[in-house]
Design a binder for these strands. Structure first.
Lengths: 339, 339
DNA sequence: TTGCACTGCGCAAGCGGTTGTTCTTATTTG
DNA sequence: CAAATAAGAACAACCGCTTGCGCAGTGCAA
């Protein structure tokens, strides 16, 4: 094909006006079956694709959505995000949207602002929310459609997330039922809703199973290796028989520290974690953990956003975002008793 | 601010024509200092941002570039890509471009085609090239500006990459000079240029150091854990004193296998690898490896693309893409002799 | 036969910018 | 001092597509 083929070309070739071509494509006006078919087949043959910019300019839509990511991801978050992203792409691909990647820094959302003020996107997906999220505030204020992938404390924000409380409840219950009565908990940033919800699940499981809760073996804000090691030292003095890590990165550090202390897993202490991340794939022993369906999270977030985008227009999408799934994967770290 | 502010608004408010406003912004026409300043300050105050779609439509530029990624990345590739991406973003951010993320599957580049035919991007960065790369072929054929991040065998393709041959040469030489004479090599896909180049560096280092090359301790195409373990068994029979893994994911598997065999690192065998990936951060012992400057790779790729994009227009960019850096990080796996 | 509703399609005005050309002044220059 | 020249700004077309409105033609009930 030599030149770019435009709607005018087609109109000329078909001996009709561009209006007719446009209407045929969008299916909006009244077009006779005959001309419609003629035009459609011509389009198919000549492989016409409307110019996205022109189209966008005409109806004030860009057909892009921004995905806002933080500057840094650790080895657990990154694959998690990547899989969610694939979920998002699944949806955008057949909704004919594209993804614009926007990076924000802790106190700097200039890139996001730029993308918004330049009208480069129709909506936004926040891939990670901070407790006090400038991005979310900005978007709320500007009335830009967006959804947050993962929990946030702000109920004004459209969000999708797994049920972390139930997940942790089930995991905890499972371990408690396996006669692991003194079960420690190590979690990350206390102000994160996720941390809070998992903590609640842990507590609730103790109540349900009528096992006393010992606040001395619950540690939150375990954000740095050094602190995790200190926690570990403390715990070793407390005669515990199990530990739930809220996060595989905590778990990794914990494991290597325990190994250096010659503590055996699961003989001395049982270990369970969250995310079932590949970072622990080759660990010996294999680690019991909760695996989320990351792609589904992405799909759900994206569907929700598309809903919002279309709702202002007309038909609410019918895609029912089901309950987000997770799975408790039981491995050696909580089961094997002899090797 | 209530309504979207457009160039017409500004023109009206300033009592000039939109031409004048446009010209003051682009700095192209002749505008008196007085009106220019008036307009510019008005723009600054009212925080005007030109509508990207309209601008793009007018001058046939989208101001976004596509980044093509594969469906899957492993735990070594993913962080590598992420850092390269950050490098790319550094450049695009102040060149006022945005990034469109496009995923391709092994034999399916429909998303890329869509993005191109819809005129959604000005250029493309291929984040991973396959030996027989449909994406590259397509782009070449369509004469779309693009660069490949990482080597490819096709010299028609604009590409940026580290000097893997020299890197491996230096690493090998270093180890050989430390009296590790029987040094095995385990690499990935033989058809990859990267693998080939590293292999060459390994060979060259042996020649330079006048150490006989033993093909029996060189293994390529080590793509699956099971095969890596077999290689490992073989090597253990060959009385080697060191192994270079071309890739941290190979290394990870190797290490866990060696551990299960009670082989001590570095006492029994020295180990070195590539990428210095976080996946090995907590490994004991720490692993000697080559660390590339991933962000710089991204920056270089992006600059090169922008060069191509502008070159057809006018001024060649002056950003000199220096030699891509890498660093040999020496850790316990090749040094510690007693603990 | 006239009136009316409906079908099928085109006109032309946008969407928000850019740019070649023209027009009007101001400034040089012989 | 007239004429040539340059400076500053405006006109209007265009980028490719959408859409409100209007107009001709057909079918049918009154």
């Amino acid at each position: 094909m030599s030149k770019k083929i435009t709607i005018d070309n087609i109109a000329a070739a078909m001996g009709v006006s561009k209006t007719t071509v446009s209407r045929t494509i969008s299916g909006k006006g009244r077009i006779s079956a005959k001309t419609r078919d003629r035009i459609l087949s011509y389009i198919a043959e000549n492989n016409y694709n409307p110019h996205a910019l022109a189209k966008g300019l005409a109806n004030s839509k860009t057909y892009n959505i921004a995905i806002v990511i933080p500057e840094e991801y650790n080895l657990v978050e990154l694959p998690f995000f990547q899989k969610s992203l694939m979920g998002i792409l699944e949806i955008t691909e057949d909704a004919d949207y594209d993804i614009l990647l926007v990076m924000v820094k802790p106190n700097d959302i200039t890139q996001l602002i730029k993308v918004i003020t330049n009208n480069k996107v129709d909506g936004v997906i926040l891939a990670r929310t901070y407790q006090k999220d400038m991005a979310a505030e900005y978007l709320l204020e500007q009335k830009i459609p967006f959804v947050s992938m993962g929990s946030s404390n702000n109920e004004l924000i459209a969000q999708v997330d797994n049920d972390h409380q139930t997940a942790c409840y089930e995991l905890t219950s499972l371990l408690l039922s396996q006669d692991i009565k003194r079960l420690a908990l190590i979690g990350g940033d206390e102000s994160h809703v996720v941390t809070e919800n998992r903590y609640r699940g842990y507590v609730r499981a103790h109540q349900t199973n009528i096992i006393p809760l010992d606040q001395d073996i619950i540690y939150l804000n375990a954000l740095y290796p050094a602190y995790i090691q200190r926690i570990c030292d403390d715990l070793l003095k407390s005669r515990i028989d199990g530990i739930i890590c809220m996060d595989d990165s905590i778990c990794t550090i914990l494991l290597s520290y325990l190994k250096s202390k010659k503590i055996l897993i699961p003989e001395d202490i049982k270990i369970a974690s969250f995310y079932h991340s590949a970072i622990l794939d080759h660990n010996i022993p294999s680690i019991t953990s909760i695996k989320f369906d990351e792609a589904e999270l992405g799909r759900a977030a994206c569907c929700k956003l598309l809903d919002i985008l279309n709702e202002s227009a007309k038909t609410p999408m019918e895609k029912p975002v089901g309950q987000l799934r997770y799975e408790i994967i039981i491995r050696e770290s909580t089961t094997k008793t002899s090797s």
